[in-house]
Write a protein that binds this DNA or RNA. Structure first.
Length: 740
DNA sequence: CGTACTAGTCTTTTT
DNA sequence: GACTAGTACG
């Protein structure tokens, strides 16, 4: 049977067009992933295309992994040689091979936003720019925008045309880039910029990749920025077999440079493009689709689409309005509890979506009180937590001492009596000599003279070199344990803040879990590779949908996901849409928020509940907001529980700030769960649903029999005798074993 | 050199 | 309200 049999006519049409440019306009829930995977399977299975020649770009690592698994299931072989990756990891892979052509070392490090900020701070200090008047963030944002638009330092210098502020910016931009280069580092945006630069400056390298990637596919095309557009254009220029999939109504990343014109103008750039619209929705009820269609219809420039389904009307949309955000959270949690008790759903069937991360807190508290297992996606990124960054800085220093920021981060953490004066002496010497900070530490005695300071530095250098010498012989897990032991890191945590120590230690345990999983999944794992993988993960990549937990996340994180029951919380003008967009004179801003609302509504498969609170704390201030205009855009007859009073409430006019009146806090219970921090995962060590003797399935090792399940310090440790791979020990949380 | 306190910012979303 | 960076002091 052909792999295309599972597709409807439109989907089939899109999947069969392998040659030339193809634009698939795929409405929410229209089976776009299925089209992409079956199209790829069709290429390999029936068109005889070598998987090696296929490039598929996705938005998140999770999507990439999922796509590969699904293709695997369809064709059973060859899927591992398809290049499926995100834009960023694709670029890293290419740059690791060729970036020496641009004067960087191929073992460059990737800087996250915190690292970029440190570099910027140093630059501004050196240029004596007052950060009160010009905050780092502003420069960083502008630099990011430039990079997204592929505007180089030279371009900015040329365009400054004597304008004081612009010239200053160009100078900062230049110095910032120099700072990165000195540390042999690239920031997120550079990954794309440098790859494009590589391709334009070295056509023979580009040609190499053009000859390899004969067929290119890009998912979530509506969220590509100019740099990404250019990268794809270059790669596809020779063969023109480019297939992009997206939905202009779901373009929600303008703030990070996404250019909706990339999808709207696709046919102008590729005039002979075949365009296929997928409008049949397989996810939601007609009621939900009607609501989504009605809301999005208020947007101006969009490709006309109308989602439909043969699923039937289903339940009405439930609208809840409460006095306070506190009550709102309570109502939502009550609904979930009731459904669960009635046996209508599992916890994992429910997701609560909100506009801002801060909203998760109340919901978390209520979940804890009700004893509901939940999982918060996002918030403070796991890899930007202090303890994790410290350990990673050790690993980076061990891996390659060229990352000055990493070395400086840990040179006195835990405290070893190396102070600011010593550090700045070494830093000055490094700057003057052009050597790296770590290299200067190695010859500290030369710089500082014989003394206590030099001795302390020598101790640090010894520590690093001992660990360095071990890297090749021990596992990552052992290396991290070794670091912890030799530095007495956990003791330091206990001492400095006993309240959070437990959680921080658990986080480190989680990092060890990830290291173990990494070593399991790679044939020849290296420290550099691990650090690289870790630099490019998104929060959503770590979501485990097998765990039976209610999901709490922002609307942005929810893109691409679906849940039987969806709760849209905080539907209030001023929060969603946020004031920024309400007050802006750019109508595009509100439209972007509306698209976000559309994304939220269309996540729901069966039941949608939207809620609004009359007042809530925002930034320590109690604010009152009217019900969101988006709620009013949903036809009345689809809603259940719409209070008539709401209809008269005036809408906020543009240019007018929403009323912010201090209101006495209605609830006295300030913070019943002070130990709770965002991102904490409840029950991450819950017992697996299999036991000794059960047959299980592992992603890589195939089927096997469970020998034992033991509760370890961090997670359950499972021993499995695999039919083809022998006995393996692994952590339950990461092995993702499926009971058969 | 290390600590404790203060002031200021943040909150729109993230690879 | 929470977190961070910067500063003053021991």
């Amino acid at each position: 049977m052909s792999v295309l049999e599972q597709l409807n006519d439109k989907q089939k049409e899109a999947a069969m067009q392998l040659e030339g440019p193809v634009l698939i306009l795929a409405g929410a829930g229209s089976g776009k992933t299925r089209v992409l995977t079956n199209r790829t399977a069709y290429m390999i299975d029936e068109a005889g295309i070598n998987p090696w020649n296929i490039l598929a770009i996705t938005f998140t690592n999770k999507a990439a992994q999922e796509m590969r698994e699904r293709i695997d299931r369809l064709v059973g072989f060859g899927s591992e040689s398809i290049w499926v990756a995100t834009f960023h990891s694709t670029c890293v892979r290419i740059l690791r091979r060729h970036i020496d052509l641009l004067g960087y070392d191929t073992n460059f490090t990737i800087y996250d936003t915190d690292d970029s900020k440190s570099v910027m701070k140093e630059v501004l200090k050196r240029l004596q720019i007052d950060t009160k008047q010009y905050p780092e963030k502003r420069f960083l944002n502008r630099i990011s925008n430039c990079k997204n638009e592929l505007s180089s330092v030279e371009d900015e210098e040329r365009d400054a045309l004597g304008d004081y502020a612009d010239e200053m910016f160009a100078k900062v931009y230049r110095e910032y880039q120099a700072g990165l280069k000195k540390n042999n580092a690239l920031d997120f945006d550079d990954l794309l910029v440098k790859t494009v630069e590589l391709f334009t400056s070295f056509p023979e390298v580009l040609e190499n990749y053009q000859k390899r990637f004969l067929y290119i596919m890009v998912d979530e095309y509506q969220d590509t920025n100019t740099a990404q557009f250019e990268l794809i254009r270059l790669l596809a220029a020779r063969n023109r077999n480019i297939c992009v999939v997206g939905d202009d109504d779901q373009s929600i990343y303008k703030f990070r440079g996404a250019n909706i014109r990339n999808i709207l103008d696709f046919e102008k750039v590729y005039p002979n493009a075949k365009v296929v619209k997928l409008e049949q929705n397989y996810r939601s009820t007609q009621t939900i689709l009607d609501a989504a269609n009605a809301v999005i219809a208020n947007n101006g420039s969009r490709k006309d689409k109308k989602l439909w389904t043969d699923k039937g009307d289903g339940e009405k949309i439930r609208f809840i309005s409460t006095d306070t955000a506190y009550e709102e959270a309570e109502r939502i949690v009550d609904f979930i509890c009731a459904d669960k008790r009635a046996g209508k759903c599992d916890y994992r069937d429910n997701a609560v979506l909100y506009r801002t991360n801060a909203q998760s807190r109340l919901l978390e508290e209520k979940c804890i009180m009700a004893g509901i297992p939940y999982s918060v996606v996002g918030g403070v990124n796991f890899y930007s937590r202090r303890e994790i960054k410290d350990i990673l800085a050790y690993l980076k220093t061990i891996d390659n001492g060229r990352d000055d920021l990493a070395v400086r981060r840990i040179i006195n953490v835990p405290k070893r009596g190396i102070g600011a004066t010593t550090i700045s002496k070494i830093a000055d010497h490094a700057a003057a000599s052009g050597l790296s900070f770590y290299d200067c530490c190695v010859k500290a005695e030369e710089i500082l003279g014989h003394g206590k300071a030099a001795e302390k530095i020598a101790e640090f250098v010894d520590l690093i070199s001992v660990l360095k010498s071990k890297v090749e012989y021990i596992t990552l897990e052992q290396l991290i344990d070794d670091i912890l032991e030799r530095t007495d890191y956990e003791a330091m945590l206990e001492e400095s803040d006993p309240d959070d120590a437990q959680e921080r230690i658990e986080n480190i345990g989680e990092l060890v879990n990830k290291a173990v999983a990494f070593e399991e999944q790679n044939d020849e794992p290296t420290l550099s590779q691990f650090l690289e993988e870790v630099a490019l993960v998104a929060d959503i990549d770590n979501v485990d949908e097998n765990a039976d937990k209610v999901m709490l996340m922002t609307l942005h994180s929810a893109k691409g996901l679906e849940f039987p029951n969806v709760y849209l919380a905080g539907m209030e003008d001023g929060l969603f849409p946020g004031y920024m967009s309400i007050c802006s004179d750019d109508p595009e801003e509100i439209e972007e928020e509306r698209r976000l609302c559309y994304v939220g509504i269309t996540r729901a498969m069966e039941k949608l509940t939207i809620s609004a609170a009359g007042s809530r704390m925002i930034r320590g201030e109690t604010t009152r907001n009217p019900v969101s205009r988006f709620v009013k855009e949903i036809p009345q007859e689809l809603l259940l529980g719409m209070p008539s009073s709401m209809k008269q409430k005036p809408q906020i006019q543009p240019q007018q700030r929403p009323t912010v009146q201090p209101v006495k806090p209605v609830v006295a219970k300030a913070k019943p769960f002070a130990y709770l921090t965002k991102g904490s995962q409840m029950g991450s060590t819950s017992a697996p649903d299999y036991g000794p003797g059960d047959r299980v399935q592992h992603m890589k090792f195939g089927q096997g029999t469970v020998l034992s399940v033991e509760k370890g310090a961090r997670d359950y440790e499972v021993s499995v005798d695999f039919d083809n791979a022998g006995v393996k020990k692994m952590f339950a949380g990461f092995a993702k074993l499926k009971k058969l």
